[in-house]
Write a protein that binds this DNA or RNA. Sequence first.
DNA 1: GCCCATCCGTGCGCTGGCGCACATACGATC
DNA 2: GATCGTATGTGCGCCAGCGCACGGATGGGC
Lengths: 223, 223
Amino acid sequence: MLAALPRSQYLGLLDGLKSVALTFGEVLYEPGERILHVYFPNDSLVSLLTLVEGHRALEVGMVGREGMVGVPLALGMDVSPVRALVQGAGVALRMKSARFCEEIRKSPQLRQEVNRYTGALMAQVTQTAACNRFHVVEARLARWLLMTRDRVRSDEFRLTHEFLGHMLGVRRVGVTKAARALQGRKLISYSRGKIRILNSKGLERTSCTCYEIVRDMRDGVGK
Amino acid sequence: MLAALPRSQYLGLLDGLKSVALTFGEVLYEPGERILHVYFPNDSLVSLLTLVEGHRALEVGMVGREGMVGVPLALGMDVSPVRALVQGAGVALRMKSARFCEEIRKSPQLRQEVNRYTGALMAQVTQTAACNRFHVVEARLARWLLMTRDRVRSDEFRLTHEFLGHMLGVRRVGVTKAARALQGRKLISYSRGKIRILNSKGLERTSCTCYEIVRDMRDGVGK
DNA sequence: GCCCATCCGTGCGCTGGCGCACATACGATC
DNA sequence: GATCGTATGTGCGCCAGCGCACGGATGGGC
């Protein structure tokens, strides 16, 4: 995301940015907690989850290098409404909240980039909401795998059915059943937490159109 | 929402604002269409709906006098990702998109107000997403009625079960069943499109906690 | 005072997902 | 290479919501 800024702007930010390693399962924010830093994922991947008591988590957004974690801060809120969970380990650039707020005041270009991303994220959340309401687990799982692949740029990643259940808001067993169906059609293969996409075209056909809609929104909004 | 601005700012906006009557069922935006105006509801009420082909509409947000319709514009998007449907007839102040973009550049206070509301809306959408996924129709209906009441400031309003189905993303019959249950417990009464809330405390107990969460978020964010 | 459009009530069979519980299978570790 | 924790497979009864279809009621208009 920062790459979209004019070079001079980017250089000005550099001394406020610290490169940090995000590890799988790390929680960057909990709902209701103050936001201390914002993150610009490089090759890492962060999930935004809502928590409703008595239910498992539900993913409402996914942030990779195209975006940032901590959008609410740019909107003048200092607490996060969601849990931000590192779902793909990797590197991110981190900035202190105060510094970020200052930069955003000083730089209209940064402001604009953040705004554009906020809009895209909002649209993603909206689409995901409808998807979670209407589509069956198998289609949603397919969509989720494709979205993840797009962001980590790899056909293989490590996640258990249990974990996926918390993304899709369903039971582990529901994931197992859907995953088995996909495996049966040779679209994916998996074993003990390692998932590999075998046939992404086929997956796209199985997934709901939400996949393309979200992808095109993001691309439309300029990287 | 505009009322939160300093008086001088507000006066500066006045000549760009036109008071318009919104009629029930009027569509302000369709998904993918250009946003021509933004609206600041006064006593009117606007629903934001996602459309997924093959399914009925699903409400993701509700805008009353506390907010505005057309947030994406402030984020640099000129098309709406949602349908904006007038759900409660009444008056709103309207401004042309170009003028709004200009004003927002000129006035940091307006910018800030809009940002704050954007954050609140985002949180609302997020919460609604989880609610729509996890909670049963009866609880969601209760929540919806309460939220509507808070915005129109009246215990009675006109809407059919069919219409409510499109808000909650369920069949008309599903609404009928839930509404009947609520009526049986003397929480509401209704007949031919006229709904009246009889016992709002009781409704709150039936509704999911999402109601309070969304309400408190909004109040927390000033106004 | 009748008619008709609209709104509401009910029934039926079906399916996806739920909670719960237990059976297998792999792999790291000692 | 036996052990144990974690990951995956399967089964069962249950229920909310679905699509479809039709019957009943109410009120506005002529």
